[in-house]
Write a protein that binds this DNA or RNA. Structure first.
Length: 564
DNA sequence: AGTTTCATATGG
DNA sequence: CTCGCCATATGAAACT
């Protein structure tokens, strides 16, 4: 059962049941308490799949009212996937845009995405700002849904694309829930670690004590009074005057020179970074009531990975993770998928020898034993180099070994690379499509064929192919792996949130191939089992019977920093 | 003064 | 032989 649902902007809304193809099964019903009605239907024996325009626009209000749903169809996310599949990346995705395209009418642009919104400021939600809706939108929703069903049936692999749509929609639910729940964050522990790393906070907003002292020591070591070590240009000039020429002031460049200022600069950089990106100002903006609540954006990255809006949730420095602490009597179950991308390559390519290695707990070790004289590091570099399109460096001989011994896997990524170089589009396992090359979008010359469209602008210069085409080849080569890995991970998340429903355990963090569950100590065993089960089911759903395993490293800890 | 790009860090 | 993929965020530097 499908139920179209829309908010009226004042707490009420419309509901309209429909069949699986989007044909209405009755009239729309207007209710004054939308969250209450949705909660009732969710509690019934056969909760529907909710059809709505946008999960963030509607589900946040339901969550605020304490209501969760099991399944939805997010029309805008689905539209983005369908447009991408048709090579029409970036076109408007609203319900109005779907209907306009269907009718051959002028397509209205989408509203601009919201600015990053630290929870402290600007508490008004979309609903409070938007004018109340007076006309029933459920008819348009169902028309748009039916249109999407038809177009899904015409995709390259409708069965897989339906899985993609379901996974993307489930991911949107999980993302909203994760942002609502938040990551446990001990402000006092964070303060303590900032004091330890940075010293006392400056009352006038300047460098904190420890950084100011380091800055002075660096200036003295380089005989450059008043030096600002956070300025790359100043720092590089100061090193030059001290007789040390460096190409830039990156940490790895400085590490290669021998000068007493270098260790001081490296220490300064590390701590300065924490001060600016995850210091007191960040905490005041993003941590409330013991939780860090980032805003996740499912599908925000071209490869289908999630992004976040503000808060840097996906770049929390390792040392700062000490502030992520479970509540008393609770634990954090930290699960991350090891060696995910090479396992994905084994699964999608069907390379029998790589699949055999991917049946092992340590894929790289198995690969090394088979083909690299047991040299695990070399095996790893070869595989990563093949997936990233490495063309230089000391790993080239190892990459050549891989190419010879695992030809099916090699050809899979090589084919994706050549398609990209030629200006074509590639797809993930479930059918997420890469964006067209930028200049093709700009000129409207999107290739209609997926493979083999000629590059309209080949570089006439001698000495090799166009570097832009080469870069595009590396992008498409990696896209088919990274996008499929994202699909596997979000499928795991979808299964896991379903398995945790009804428990005290809560999903609190998700980062590409890693998931954190906060749960009472007594649930640790069940949660650990659930996450392993979710990983196994994700592999089966995507790839069916395969030797390839997707093992998880799971740790139950009090503090995030204690995992791995 | 406001906006864009660069350099550098973090994460996967 | 930091190289090859995907990102976000900050401050400095360089612009309009």
């Amino acid at each position: 059962m499908l139920v179209a649902v829309a908010s009226d902007g004042t707490g009420g809304g419309w509901l309209r049941p429909a069949g699986g193809t989007g044909v209405p099964a009755g009239p729309a019903r207007r209710v004054p308490d939308l969250a209450g009605v949705v909660a009732q239907r969710e509690a019934a024996s056969d909760p529907p799949r909710w059809l709505w325009a946008s999960t963030p626009a509607l589900y946040q209000r339901l969550l605020a009212a304490g209501v969760r749903v099991a399944r939805c169809h997010d029309l805008e996310l689905t539209e983005a996937l369908l447009l991408g599949h048709a090579g029409r990346w970036g076109e408007p995705r609203s319900v109005a845009a779907v209907l306009a395209r269907r009718a051959g009418a002028a397509v209205p642009p989408d509203p601009p995405p919201p600015a990053p919104r630290p929870p402290g400021q600007a508490q008004e939600s979309l609903f409070d700002l938007a004018p109340p809706v007076t006309a029933d939108p459920t008819g348009d929703l169902l028309t748009g849904y039916a249109d999407q069903q038809e177009r899904t049936g015409r995709t390259a692999d409708p069965g897989r694309f339906r899985l993609l749509v379901a996974a993307e929609s489930a991911g949107a639910l999980a993302a909203a829930e994760l942002g609502h729940t938040g990551l446990p964050w001990r402000a006092d522990v964070h303060d303590g670690l900032l004091a330890e790393l940075l010293g006392p906070r400056s009352p006038v907003g300047g460098l904190p004590g420890r950084l100011a002292a380091l800055s002075a020591e660096i200036a003295a070591a380089l005989a450059a009074p008043g030096l600002h070590p956070d300025s790359p240009a100043e720092l590089r000039r100061a090193f030059a005057r001290a007789g040390v020429e460096v190409p830039d002031t990156r940490a790895w460049s400085l590490r290669r020179v021998d000068h007493p200022a270098v260790p001081l600069v490296l220490e300064f950089k590390e701590r300065y970074r924490i001060w600016t990106a995850h210091g007191w100002t960040w905490q005041e903006a993003w941590v409330r009531d013991g939780r860090f609540r980032p805003e996740y954006v499912p599908g925000g990255v071209v490869s289908g990975r999630w992004a976040t809006r503000g808060g840097g949730a996906l770049q929390i420095p390792k040392p700062v993770r000490r502030a992520v602490v479970a509540d008393p009597g609770w634990r954090l179950v930290v699960a991350d998928a090891g060696q995910l991308e090479p396992r994905i390559l084994a699964a999608v390519s069907g390379d029998p020898r790589l699949a055999a290695a991917a049946a092992a707990g340590d894929l790289y070790a198995a690969l090394a034993a088979e083909s690299f004289d047991g040299d695990r590091a070399r095996a790893k570099l070869a595989l990563l180099g093949a997936m990233y399109g490495q063309t230089g460096g000391s790993a080239l001989p190892a990459i050549a070994v891989l190419r010879r011994q695992y030809p099916t896997a090699w050809q899979y990524v090589e084919r994706a690379a050549r398609t990209g170089e030629a200006g074509g589009l590639v797809r993930s396992w479930l059918g997420r499509t890469c964006p067209p090359a930028a200049r093709l979008v700009a000129t409207g010359q999107v290739p209609g064929e997926l493979a083999g469209a000629a590059d309209p602008d080949p570089d006439p210069a001698a000495g090799g192919p166009d570097p832009r085409a080469r870069a595009r080849g590396r992008f498409t080569r990696n896209f088919v792996i990274q996008a499929t890995a994202a699909e596997w991970a979000v499928t795991l998340l979808a299964y896991l949130r379903a398995e945790l429903a009804g428990r005290a355990a809560e999903l609190v963090f998700f980062q590409h191939d890693e998931v954190l569950v906060h749960c009472p100590e007594r649930e640790v065993e069940a949660v650990t089992g659930a996450v392993h089960e979710a990983a196994a089911r994700a592999g089966q759903l995507l790839f069916g019977p395969t030797r390839v395993r997707f093992p998880l490293d799971v740790a139950a800890v009090r503090c995030y920093a204690d995992a791995a």
